[in-house]
């Protein structure tokens, strides 16, 4: 029989990567179907994790289901490896899976992220795992899951198009600056998770596999490598990724996504890279 005995884990009371094997199988089945139907949300029996819902439990379950002893794991939150929640999740996997971790994007085989995609182009050997708070791209327009499921089945995204049209009519551009919905493979409207619009183009035809986990909402979805991902827009109002028009005050980058830091109480500001690894690499650290 498929064993469910705890083993090979530094914390003996738990299985490797915390989840029991039956739960991993259930998640793995969902992941394969998610890859086969790009952008479609697969319901799964998300479990309570020892970290709170809303703090990355979906991403953690996906990572736990795919992680193996040969993987090198990087965890970022807001682009940074040293934000507290990233540290906490990295610690969790170091503890329950004894896995090798890194802050270097280039060295990682699995990158779990909240709110960013690294600046360094991803490669075929890498898997991105996104933590997703609200997987349903239509939830602000239609909160009922039974109804949004029907709209996805019909491919009826007129609600989102009308909202975008109204935004443009009212304020001249789209109202969403992050978590801007995307069309995947020309079929499914998908929440890219709350990444800034700046990162949306990185989803398009990426060499890496992108997996999305929403624990509280109990959904998994995926964008396979080399798959078309288009930000929702209109021909005469094309989607425009935005960044602060400054240079990073640490590495000087004029192309990376920047965090704005309040430097003093006179309104003085400095800008630094949100991707800490990219910034360090550019500085030659």
């Amino acid at each position: 029989m498929n064993a469910i005995t705890p083993r090979n884990a530094p914390e003996n009371a738990y299985n490797f990567a915390y989840l029991d094997e039956a739960t991993k199988r259930m998640i793995r089945r969902a992941i394969l179907k998610a890859i086969a139907i790009p952008g479609h949300q697969i319901p799964f029996g998300a479990r309570e994790m020892p970290l709170p819902y809303g703090w990355g439990t979906g991403g953690i379950q996906v990572t736990a289901a795919i992680l193996g002893p040969r993987d090198v794991l990087k965890v970022i939150d807001q682009g940074a490896d040293d934000t507290t929640n990233a540290v906490s999740i990295r610690r969790f996997f170091a503890r329950v899976a004894n896995v090798q971790t890194t802050t270097r994007t280039a060295e990682a085989t699995i990158i779990q992220t909240r709110h960013r995609i690294p600046e360094r182009p991803l490669t075929e050997g890498q898997v991105m795992v996104f933590q997703v708070p609200m997987p349903e791209p239509l939830f602000k327009l239609e909160p009922r899951l039974a109804e949004t499921r029907r709209l996805h089945a019909l491919g009826d995204y007129s609600l989102a198009q009308v909202k975008l049209y109204e935004d443009i009519a009212k304020q001249g551009e789209s109202g969403s600056s992050y978590n801007h919905p995307v069309m995947v493979g020309g079929r499914y409207l998908m929440s890219p998770s709350p990444i800034p619009g700046f990162d949306n183009p990185k989803l398009h035809n990426s060499p890496a596999l992108m997996l999305f986990g929403a624990g509280r909402e109990k959904k998994i979805y995926a964008v396979p490598p080399y798959t078309s991902v288009e930000s929702l827009d209109f021909e005469d109002h094309p989607f425009r990724p935005m960044r602060a028009p400054q240079h990073c005050s640490a590495c000087g980058s004029a192309t990376s996504y920047l965090d704005e830091i309040i430097a003093d109480d006179q309104g003085g500001r400095i800008f630094v890279c949100s991707d800490t690894d990219h910034c360090a690499e550019t500085q030659g650290l």
Binding site: E48, P52, Y53, G54, W55, T57, D77, Q78, G79, T83, T84, N85, R114, H115, R116, P133, E173, G175, S176, S177, Y178, N179, P194, I195, P196, G197, F198, R216, M242, R243, A244, Y257, L258, D259, E260, S274
Partner: peptide, 25 residues
């Protein structure tokens, strides 16, 4: 309440990347 607590309290996590894009917007 375990789900609700988690999601309400996750607002304590840093959101500065999203907020930055809201600022620019």
């Amino acid at each position: 309440n375990v789900e609700a607590t988690g999601f309400v309290e996750h607002l304590k996590l840093p959101h500065h990347v999203d907020f930055q894009s809201e600022l620019e917007k």
